[in-house]
Nucleic acid binder design. Structure first.
Length: 437
RNA sequence: CGGGGCGUAGCGCAGCCUGGUAGCGCAUCUGCUUUGGGAGCAGAGGGUCGCUGGUUCAAAUCCGGCCGCCCCGACCA
């Protein structure tokens, strides 16, 4: 993409309303614009990141045997009356009346909707297990939206719903999501720790929050050092195998958020205890027959009995993750995108547009990168080098490839790794080889 | 929902107390000079001062009502 033709409204100064670093950087780097409290428009650069994160989530869900659907944002109140939640949910749920005076709502979640879809279609345990998910906008009328996309009212969420004939099956489904989540966040360059969470009225231990560690995280978290050392992506996962050992490896260690941490009774030795800040980016839980019973979602089991289906639900805050990644990865100069979610792989800087040699070399590199399917943002605009570098640092692409007459006279370009700041002068061919490797 | 703060050019702000031609920096546009880490000079454009009543000869400024946004607390992907 040529910067001269791109819509990238960056800001030198920080908008007054932005308080935390990810919000500030998202506004400054031209990723989002606020529409109203807790509601944002996504500009081209930000939308690219959102899509990349969405893609990783989708790939890992599919790999875990889930099937993507798309349910509506607007739901009928009728469904929620069936589950009993219409009156329970409170003012966080945005209620709407259509022209025929029917009660509707903008979905804050989709348990009812998916259960309704499931119950009319599946009647036998032979069709289980199943896991359906979608990636859709939600609306929760938070009392106090804040922190940009980290706590918006409108947000993009991946929510998955599992269906099993019995508890043992539900537990296997839960484990699949547990492992899938570890991989999903790791692929985004995030260190995510599953932490014991309240499982609500159902009880039991099948509920975990996935918290990523970031210095600027919202809440303090405490966990055993061992949890930081597991290699999540090192080996492929067979989702049909018994995943209990993997889950056990993660859950045997202490890991809690500050509201559950008691220094007096903490079982971890001080030298093994990691104290950090965290951001919740995912939440999984098993809730049994909470919806299937009132909504009459039943299947026939192997003994010929009609039983309510066992369910679980699994959320990932996709739009929140954009902010969370930035919280976890930035520096003084701006964002430092992990490779996997970066909006472009390379920022190509032409130091002197209009100079035949510089233009020629840049155009050539740009074309060759495109040919190798390496997405580059090509700064072909007139302007001072300092401004160009500052802008590139702000938007934080993993690589910066700088080309100018002075270097070309020596036969070199400069390649900079954003994350480390390391710069290297090398030939254009060598730089290309590095970037397309 | 309780407490606090703020709405003046795209962004950051001053002006308000003490009413009298709406300002500054950055950004934008034009010209010239510069050009390898947020340039210099000269000029230009851009405003329902959040909205609405009121007081007054006169309101960004004083008074009332409303709206919006932000922060702190209790709650959440």
């Amino acid at each position: 993409m040529r910067l001269s033709a791109y819509f990238l409204p960056t800001l030198k100064e920080t908008p007054a309303e932005a308080q935390i670093v990810s919000h500030r950087l998202m506004l400054r780097a031209g990723l989002i614009r606020q529409s109203s409290a807790g509601i944002y428009s996504w500009l081209p650069l930000g939308f690219r990141v959102l899509k990349r994160i969405e893609r990783i989530v989708r790939e890992e869900m599919d790999a875990a045997g889930c099937h993507e659907v798309l349910m509506p944002t607007i739901q009928p109140a009728e469904l929620w009356r069936e589950s009993g939640r219409y009156d329970d949910y409170g003012p966080e749920m945005l209620r709407i009346t259509d022209r025929h005076q029917r009660d509707m709502l903008y979905g804050p979640t989709n348990e009812e909707q998916i259960t309704e879809i499931f119950r009319t279609a599946v009647k036998s345990y032979r069709e289980l297990p199943r896991n359906l998910y979608h990636i859709q906008w939600k609306f929760r009328d938070e009392v106090r939206p804040r922190f940009g996309v980290m706590r918006g009212r409108e947000f993009l969420m991946k929510d998955a719903y599992s269906f099993d004939v019995d508890y043992a099956g539900a537990r296997r489904s839960y484990n699949r999501m547990f492992v899938s989540y570890l991989r999903t966040f790791a692929r985004m360059g995030l260190k995510a720790i599953p932490m014991q969470a309240d499982s609500g009225p159902i009880g039991g231990d099948l509920s975990h929050e996935f918290v990523i560690l970031a210095d600027t995280g919202e809440s303090a978290v405490y966990c055993h050092r061992a949890l930081l050392e597991h290699d999540v992506l090192g080996t492929d996962v067979d989702y049909d195998a018994d995943l209990e050992p993997i889950v056990a490896m993660w859950t045997k260690h202490y890991a809690v958020t500050d509201d559950k941490h008691d220094p007096e009774s903490c079982p971890v030795a001080p030298e093994d205890l990691v104290t950090a800040r965290g951001i919740e980016v995912g939440h999984i839980f098993y809730f049994g027959t909470k919806y299937s019973k009132p909504m009459n979602a039943t299947v026939t089991n192997a003994d010929g009995e009609t039983v309510p289906v066992e369910q679980g639900s699994y959320g990932i805050g996709v739009s929140r993750l954009v902010g969370a990644v930035i919280e976890a990865s930035h520096d003084e100069a701006g964002i430092v995108w992990p490779d996997a979610v970066a909006p472009f792989a390379v920022g190509l800087i032409n130091l002197k547009p209009g100079d035949a040699a510089s233009d020629g070399a840049c155009d050539d590199l740009y074309a060759k990168l495109a040919g190798a399917r390496v997405e580059a943002l090509y700064d072909d605009t007139a302007g001072r080098a300092g401004v160009k570098f500052a802008t590139m640092d702000l938007i934080g692409l993993p690589w910066q490839l700088t080309v100018g007459p002075r270097g070309l006279a020596k036969g070199v370009v400069e390649l900079k790794r954003r994350a480390t700041g390391e710069r290297e002068e090398l030939s254009g061919e060598a730089a290309l080889a590095r970037l397309t490797a």
